[in-house]
Design a protein around this nucleic acid. Structure first.
Lengths: 223, 223
DNA sequence: ATATGTATCATTGTATACAATCGTACATTA
DNA sequence: TAATGTACGATTGTATACAATGATACATAT
């Protein structure tokens, strides 16, 4: 890992602040806190058994991650994601995933490729069985592997961030019927990467995200 | 502005933390602090006349912005940008600027378009005169207008972040002879946007960044 | 009745005190 | 001499005290 990668890996798991940050992030993304809900420093601190200081520092970071919005002298509020935000994220991701796939053709390791193949294979099984929970996990992991295989910490971080946001949305449309089709597209991307066909990999990954978005809309996501 | 835009605008100018954050950010980007230099909470606090608390909170944010790296229980260090980071950033930007240009064809306002035209016109003048400092400012501004004209706060923030990083690098290669050529490309992008030709705008903006990177390399940037 | 002023309280903003940690210098030992 | 142990100081991590701010409720005036 480049000693100078921007967009730092978050975050120090062993400090109180780090634990508060991770916990809050999880809780927000999982939907424990409603959109717009106010987070009070003391309350959060008491819940996690820490003072306000680490909570405040975690808040500052969550603000920059876009998960909460801090109004000076007033409070911290869980941010919502508008329909337009979701669309923008998908469109941005479509470009960047394409780039990641292209770079993966150059940088993927044997281990990563193997995990990708296994992922596709396993997903095929779960798709047939209708195991949506597992499909969801495999889908998430497929994209993570892709990001890692890009060989770019910068790109990896960007995409992981976006992916995180979208998870909130994706969970709502989990049981849609896209599973098998999505996995077929994964397979195509995987094969293109294996064949070191950069142009094709980029094109397929790009289309994959566009398709995912269109499916999201079709399955009735609005906000 | 969407009340739910992720990637918050940074930051509360009127709190001490906000001032510390902005000041440190400026100082790092301007090169006042060397890469790798250690930032001590007390020293920074004394310099700015505040206690450690707002400094620490600003540090946490700067860390997430990627400008410093915090080693737990040890210290905060100004991050360096490797040659590969720079390349990755340019490649990512090339995709996203393309997207921004495409969206700008749909969302640009008359006022924005006018400023863009004026920008190109003025730059032509300064390019002839060899006014590199002004060219630099105009170039920066051109891209900012483009980001704003995209109509996507998400994309705008992403690109502004990347642009910031790159400014550190660009300053080193300021007086290269690319000014006029770059401005011609700006003009092309501007015309494509004015003509509402999304495909062309995306293509030109994409190429523009690639060219900028190649010029950077040619003019001897290494690290 | 509505508008405005004011007291009060909850909450955030900041400073500071204390605890934990890390690095260094020096002593000790083989 | 080289390796290891240890004490000390500098720095960060956390808790808490106090200040500033904003919201609310109630009183007062028009």
């Amino acid at each position: 890992m480049s000693d100078s990668d921007l967009k730092q890996e978050v975050t120090d798991k062993y400090s109180l602040r780090g634990r508060v940050f991770s916990r809050l992030r999880e809780d927000i993304l999982s939907g424990k806190y409603e959109e717009g809900e106010e987070l009070r420093e003391v309350a959060i601190g008491e819940e996690l058994g820490v003072s306000r200081t680490p909570v405040r520092e975690a808040f500052r970071q969550l603000e920059l991650e876009g998960l909460i919005r801090i109004v000076p002298n007033k409070g911290a509020y869980v941010t919502g994601i508008s329909g337009k935000d979701v669309k923008d994220i998908y469109m941005i991701r479509s470009r960047l995933e394409g780039l990641a796939a292209r770079w993966a053709t150059e940088h993927i390791t044997d281990v990563q490729l193997e995990e990708m193949e296994e992922n596709v294979y396993l997903a095929k099984f779960h798709a047939e069985k209708g195991h949506y929970e597992q499909l969801f996990e495999l889908d998430t992991r497929f994209h993570e592997i892709l990001y890692e295989a890009s060989g770019s910490k910068m790109l990896e971080h960007q995409l992981k961030d976006f992916h995180q946001y979208v998870i909130r949305v994706r969970k709502k449309t989990l049981s849609s019927a896209r599973g098998p089709k999505s996995n077929l597209e994964h397979e195509g991307i995987m094969v293109a990467i294996r064949d070191k066909d950069g142009d094709l990999a980029e094109k397929l990954a790009h289309e994959h995200i566009i398709n995912a978005y269109e499916n999201l809309i079709k399955s009735g996501y609005t906000k």
